[in-house]
Design a protein around this nucleic acid. Sequence first.
DNA 1: TTGAAAGCGCTAACAT
DNA 2: ATGTTAGCGCTTTCAA
Lengths: 330, 330
Amino acid sequence: MIPTIKDIAAQAGISYATVSRALNGKYGVSPATRRKVLELAHEMGYRPNAIAQGLVNRSTKTVGLIIPDITSPFYPRVALGIEDTMQQAGFSVFLCNTNWNPRREQSYLEHLTEKQVDGIFISSMARESREVEQCISRSMPLVYIASIPEDTKQSYVRTDNARGADLAVSHLLAQGRRRIAFIGSTQEPLSLEDRLRGYRAALVRENHPIDESLIALGEFREQSGYQSIRDMLSRGVIPDGVFAENDLLALGAVQGIQDAGFRVPQDIAVVGFDDIPMASHPDIALSTVHQPKYRIGQNAAEVMLQIFENGTDFTERRVLEPELLIRSSG
Amino acid sequence: MIPTIKDIAAQAGISYATVSRALNGKYGVSPATRRKVLELAHEMGYRPNAIAQGLVNRSTKTVGLIIPDITSPFYPRVALGIEDTMQQAGFSVFLCNTNWNPRREQSYLEHLTEKQVDGIFISSMARESREVEQCISRSMPLVYIASIPEDTKQSYVRTDNARGADLAVSHLLAQGRRRIAFIGSTQEPLSLEDRLRGYRAALVRENHPIDESLIALGEFREQSGYQSIRDMLSRGVIPDGVFAENDLLALGAVQGIQDAGFRVPQDIAVVGFDDIPMASHPDIALSTVHQPKYRIGQNAAEVMLQIFENGTDFTERRVLEPELLIRSSG
DNA sequence: TTGAAAGCGCTAACAT
DNA sequence: ATGTTAGCGCTTTCAA
């Protein structure tokens, strides 16, 4: 039905080994034969079977990408950077979405191994590298993205979260804000910690006390940001600035603040993190820390290609700089 | 290095065919042998090679999904519906992002064929089915999503675009709006046509004239919606309602209207299409036609699974109902 | 320059 | 219940 090199060989009256050589542009095929094979292949609508090729070449020219949320404003842009770069290098990418489910993450890791992908990109929820790395063989090229288990020896690409948070909080401080709240989510514990660290660092540097009642942790979406700030305000804890661990939380916080009768930014300034598309809408204009999402993906792909070139022992860690974007919320 | 069934067979002192049978839960293996094999497989960290399995089974348990834009607020949710459903049925999905590039679309089609996927989902830019279907073998299960070439005989799942547009325009009309503009994009010609058809149908039904100067076509993002309405207004064409082919255009139009000194919705009401997350933000509150994105994906997956069951000749077309969401813009 | 043959890891038909 | 063997489509020695 679908022609194979054997069919071409039969048509051409030659051995299928020669067909293979001709198709792959290897030496040792007469120009005449080569032309004939190519022509025949075209006529018959031949398409190589990548599965069979993968079996013998021990390379599928395919990589896996595991992300927690394909509908988020963050990961798809990272994925785009990866896909563009890998595709140029001749690789396909298997995109796997875990929906924030650690079990599904592990299952995908195993699945990708079975599919014989040549490498795996992962933005994991795991705190310990073991949770990820025990699911795959030691020889599997691995690049962590955005969220990096502390103890890993593998390559990664991430934004400097602590620095981004520091930038945001310093900016608030420079405006004369004195009681700066932190609103975070425990869903992405790794970036939470880094950003919380940056928050503390900025305060400490400016000799501000750290008031634990100004730190609220919850989920990662608007609703949680809204709730966190409402709770804080109704407890009588009134900040004059808020740094939110991500833009969704920040957006929720802005609503919460306004619903509680305060003005943003006059009474309470709000700065987020990520720079999602909504943040730049003129009616929203959220000040935030920009993450270079596409470039994270691009860099991760570059690192992966380097690993392919230099062997599994090669590792590289890249930390990209975030950028503070001041809009109207703070 | 990575153990194969042969390694297990050697360890167990049995033939590798028996190992295969034991692993796959086939009849004709003594409970003792089976247990031993399973145990050994676990110990040795055995993982089946899906590539090798695919070669002999002639099924990779993998499907391809081609979408134009992974960073859009629409496609990822469709992808999620597909992935959830297919994954439950034991399939992986190859996500391919064309970036609105028709050449890349065709290249992916061929690529997926080579990867021997069991089926392909595609949200294509093509107007004619030929552009898609000539790239793949006739026996490849295919399900179109959202945007359907008019002349295809294959299965598809989409929203009733014409009806959605009709709903929106009728709503505007019912408010007493008399000069309703249409702002569209030529980037997705198929949904454009359907939505434009619905627009005309609603006007005709209510005996309103169709004024071509109220119809503006451009790109598909905010900027274009902004420009379209600004141009219209500066030409002296002043609508009292706008139906935009998608929410991004609608958002741009709202800005354009406000920047030109008109009020939304008092002077000009605006209704979009899609119901992207931004539309529901309280500070934006865009009235729009909701598309059941996740359900489109889910349905597409169900159709694909049916094709797998009933053979390639089986086709099914599902048209899902949109829903008008009235918020503050119109 | 070409062909014959082995083998990638696995499944399944056929033997035993 | 288990073993033997062919073969999926392809690449790659090894011979000729």
